[in-house]
Design a protein around this nucleic acid. Structure first.
Length: 562
RNA sequence: GCCCCGGUAGCUCAGCUGGAUAGAGCGUCCCCCUCCUAAGGGGAAGGUCGGAGGUUCGAAUCCUCUCCGGGGCACCA
C-alpha cells in the first residue's frame, strides 16, 4: 500500500521535473510518506512539498497543488487534500483499506511475517548468567527481551541462533566452589572462617547437601554425581556448576525460554581459540608486552585506554575469551549478532569491539549490536522488594514466575524499552483485572472467541466468502481504525526486529485491543443483515489472528476463555 | 574527572527515528448494560516535554552547554 502510494508520488515528482517546475535532483529518491496520527489528515501524508519548496523556489502549498495535479489516477485513493503548511494527505478508498482483512485471514499465521532477513544468519546471545546462583529478575528481563528479539528476527526471515554463554572456570566459579565447600564442612556465612567473598545464599547449603548425599545432576552435555568428600575442591566445583546450571535451565524452561546452544567459556581454551586469538592480535601488531602483562592497544579503535589481555600471573582477563567467543560468532557466518547484557556491562563493549577490529578479519565496526537493559526494581505493596529467602540479596526470576505467572512476567519485562529502568509492580501483575495490561490483551482475544461461540449458538455461523464479499460495508469509524491497525502490524514487526526494540509490540497490541473493545461496545456484530454480520465477523477474526500472532511473539498465551 | 543510559500529566511510561492541536494506562471527577463477557466503553480535568542557547519552513526528537537520577570507568565478570 505504502509503496504503491510512494510510487504514485514519485511519478508526480518526475512529471514536475520534466515540466521544469522542479530542478533535477531536488526531489528525494524516496518521497517521505508516513501514516497520519490524526484521522482527519487521511491515511497517509507526505511532506515532500515542504521538503522541496526551497530548492524549487516556490511556496510549499503551491508546489503541493502542482504535485496533486500531476498525480496519476489510482483506484486506491478516494481523495487527496492539501493541508497545513503544505502536507499532502491521502485518503484511501474504502475497499482498498478493507482488503487487509482478506490478507490477514488468507495468510493466517504468515500475516506479519516477512523475508527481510532472506535467510541470513543472526546470533542472539542473552542471559549468559554465570552458574553461581539462581537467575535473578535482571536475567528474567534479559531472557524475555532476547527471546522475543529472536522470535521477531525469525518472523522477518532471519536464520536465528540463540546462545547462552557462560563462564564455567573463572574466579567466580572458584568462589562458588569454596562457598559450597565451606557449607559442606559445616560452616555458615556468620562463621569467622567463612570465605571472604563467599556466596551467602541458602541455595549454597542446598548444593552442599546434594553433593554430600551423592545426588546426580544433569546439565548441558554432562552428568555429575556428588561425592561425600568435602575436601575435593575440583569435584565440588564440577558438581556445583552442574547443579546450578540445571536449576537455571529449569527456571528458563518455566519461563518458556530456550537456547540452541550453551557455549562454555572453557571450550574456548580447550579448543585453542584463546591462544589463536592472542596469536592473531600479535600478528596484526595491535598487542604489546608491558609490565609483565600482554596488552591490547584498544586505543587504536576508539577505546579510552589500552587493556590487559594476559595478566602478569599468566591467566587471561575475561575480555580476551570474550573477543575469541565473538570471533566464533562471526566465523560461524552470522552477519548480525545481538548481544543482550545488563547495562552494568557497558564498559566492556568498546573493548570487545576494539578487539574484534584488531583481528582485522573483516568484521564491520558496529558489530556486534548490543542491547543493554537497565535495572529492574520489584515493588510490592508500594515498597521495594530486595530479598529472596533462598538467594539472599536479590529477588529471583523463579519468585516472580511463581507469584505472578509466566504470561504477566514476560509481558511486564517487555513493556518497557530496554534502556529504561523497569519498575515491576507485583500487585498489578497479579491482578486479574482491566488494570493489568496483559489481561486486557488476553481478554480481547477471548472476547472474539466468545462472540464466535455465541454466533454458533444462535445458528449464525460465520461465512467467510460472504464476509469477504461484503468488506466494503466496513465504513464505521471504529472499523476504519481497526483496519488501519491491522494494516500496520507487519510494519511494527519489521521495525521492532530491525531496531532491536521489542517494546513496540506490546504498545501496538494494546492499541489494537483498545480499538477492538471500543468497537465491541459501539456496535453489535451478530446483526440480522447477513452480509454486514459476516463482514464484521471477518474483521474481528482478523483482529484475533493478529492478537494471537503478537502474543505468540511475546511468548504470552492467547486464551479462548478467561 | 571521563564514558553510557534516563529525565515527557499526580504515578508508571509511549511517542513510529524532524512534522500538523505532545499520547496511553493507572489515579481523580462525570456518564453508559432489558444488548455478543461492565474482566468493557465514552467523556472531563491534568503538561514551561529537567533548564538555556542553537540548527530548521517546523524540535520532545538533531547539536552545544548545564542541572538531577542510575550505571560504568580493574592485571573482577
Amino acid at each position: 500500500m505504502k509503496t504503491q502510494l510512494a510510487e504514485l508520488l514519485s511519478q508526480a515528482l518526475a512529471r514536475l521535473q520534466a515540466e521544469g517546475l522542479l530542478p533535477a535532483g531536488a526531489a528525494p529518491a524516496e518521497p517521505a510518506l508516513e501514516r497520519t496520527r490524526d484521522r482527519a489528515h487521511g491515511d497517509y501524508a507526505s511532506n515532500v512539498a515542504l521538503a522541496c519548496a526551497k530548492a524549487a523556489k516556490r511556496k510549499p502549498r503551491e508546489l503541493a497543488e502542482a504535485l496533486v495535479a500531476a498525480l496519476p489516477a489510482s483506484a486506491l485513493i478516494a481523495k487527496v487534500e492539501i493541508a497545513g503548511p503544505g502536507f499532502i494527505n491521502f485518503f484511501l478508498a474504502a475497499d482498498a483499506q478493507a482488503a487487509v482483512v482478506r490478507r490477514v485471514l488468507m495468510q493466517g499465521e504468515g500475516y506479519g511475517r516477512s523475508n527481510t532477513g532472506a535467510g541470513r544468519k543472526v546470533m542472539v546471545e542473552y542471559v549468559s548468567a554465570n552458574p553461581t546462583g539462581p537467575l535473578h529478575v535482571g536475567h528474567g528481563r534479559a531472557a524475555a527481551i532476547g527471546d522475543t528479539l529472536a522470535r521477531l528476527l525469525a518472523a522477518t526471515g532471519w536464520e536465528v541462533t540463540r546462545e547462552f554463554y557462560y563462564n564455567d572456570a573463572g574466579v567466580q566459579i572458584a568462589n562458588l566452589a569454596v562457598s559450597v565447600q565451606a557449607r559442606a564442612q559445616g560452616l555458615t556465612p556468620e562463621s569467622p572462617d567463612w570465605p571472604a567473598d563467599g556466596y551467602r545464599g541458602d541455595y549454597i547449603l542446598e548444593v552442599a547437601k546434594a553433593y554430600l548425599a551423592g545426588e546426580s545432576v544433569h546439565a548441558d552435555d554432562r552428568e555429575v554425581t556428588g561425592k561425600a568428600d568435602p575436601d575435593d575442591t575440583d569435584a565440588i566445583r564440577a558438581f556445583a556448576v552442574a547443579y546450578l546450571r540445571r536449576e537455571q535451565d529449569l527456571d528458563l524452561k518455566a519461563f518458556g525460554v530456550g537456547f540452541d546452544r550453551y557455549f562454555l567459556e572453557s571450550s574456548l581454551y580447550a579448543d585453542g581459540l584463546v591462544e589463536a586469538t592472542v596469536a592473531r592480535l600479535a600478528e596484526t601488531g595491535h598487542s604489546y608486552e608491558a609490565d609483565g602483562a600482554l596488552w591490547l592497544r584498544s586505543t587504536d579503535f576508539g577505546d579510552d585506554k589500552d587493556r590487559v589481555m594476559r595478566k602478569r600471573d599468566g591467566t587471561f582477563t575475561y575480555f580476551l575469551p570474550d573477543v575469541a567467543y565473538h570471533r566464533t560468532k562471526w566465523e560461524r557466518g552470522h552477519v548480525r549478532a545481538i548481544t543482550e547484557l545488563g547495562a552494568d556491562h557497558h564498559g566492556s563493549l568498546a573493548r570487545v569491539r576494539a578487539g574484534l577490529q584488531a583481528l582485522d578479519i573483516g568484521i564491520p565496526a558496529g558489530w556486534p549490536e548490543y542491547v543493554l537493559h537497565q535495572m529492574v526494581t520489584v515493588m510490592r505493596g508500594g515498597e521495594e522488594v530486595k530479598i529472596s529467602k533462598r538467594a539472599g540479596g536479590y529477588v529471583t526470576l523463579r519468585d516472580l514466575i511463581d507469584e505472578v505467572g509466566r504470561d504477566a512476567t514476560r509481558f511486564f519485562f517487555l513493556m518497557r524499552k530496554a534502556d529504561s529502568h523497569l519498575v515491576f509492580d507485583v500487585d498489578l501483575a497479579r491482578q486479574q483485572s482491566l488494570d493489568n495490561p496483559v489481561y486486557y490483551l488476553q481478554y480481547a482475544h477471548a472476547r472474539v472467541c466468545s462472540v464466535l461461540r455465541q454466533a454458533g449458538e444462535k445458528g449464525l455461523d460465520y461465512d467467510e466468502a460472504a464476509g469477504f464479499a461484503a468488506l466494503a460495508r466496513l465504513v464505521e469509524p471504529h472499523e476504519e481504525t481497526l483496519l488501519t491497525l491491522l494494516d500496520r502490524y507487519p510494519e511494527v514487526i519489521e521495525l521492532a526486529a530491525g531496531s532491536d526494540e521489542p517494546q513496540l509490540l506490546p504498545a501496538y497490541l494494546r492499541e489494537l485491543a483498545q480499538a477492538f473493545h471500543a468497537y465491541y461496545n459501539a456496535h453489535a456484530f451478530l446483526v440480522d443483515d447477513a452480509a454486514l454480520r459476516n463482514a464484521r465477523l471477518a474483521l474481528i477474526l482478523a483482529v484475533r489472528r493478529v492478537l494471537a500472532s503478537g502474543l505468540d511473539l511475546l511468548g504470552v498465551s492467547a486464551p479462548e476463555t478467561m
